[in-house]
Amino acid sequence: MSKFKKDSGKSVPGVNTSSLPDIVFMLLFFFMVATTSKEVDPTVQVTQPVGGKTTDLTPYKQRSEIDFLYLGEPRNKARLEDFKMGYALSLDNVVQATADELYTTNAVGQWKKDKFEEKKSRVKVPIEGVITCLKADKGAPTGLIFDIRKELQAINALSIAYAVRDNGNI
């Protein structure tokens, strides 16, 4: 008398995969809804400093009340010495050609004004309320940040946001 049944030679039935597309689609929709796509791949390298107790800018971004400005080391190392203290400003992926250009032509002010003109009809806030978010490298000199501030002040764009990486839970 054996306790175990002998292999009767029955073959294992194949796994039914007809619901696999459903599962995958569910995952797909989750990722489509939950993520925001990167707007630009900046031409400057930015390593943000770490901070805490920050404001989440997502609601402003959804209302497109925000413009991003990148300040970091240019990826094109050959042009490194063209820039003030080795850092360059990226406005909509256009790296400012030389440091002088930034100051003589008021590039930041002009850029911000153009941006505002373009979305004026959609956004219901005056220029004072349209945030300029500055994503700066942690090694960038603060002098440059205050230069940018001054240009924004000149055109009355008075909201600024200093971006950091937040590790805390939100």
Binding site: M32, L158, S159
Partner: peptide, 28 residues
Amino acid sequence: IAFLLLIFFLVTTTMDKDQAYLRNIPKK
């Protein structure tokens, strides 16, 4: 097909939020 789409979205999206300190610049 669905996997292909899924992988595309996985690769092209970033999860990080924009975190910042909001400040006001004084009027000129």
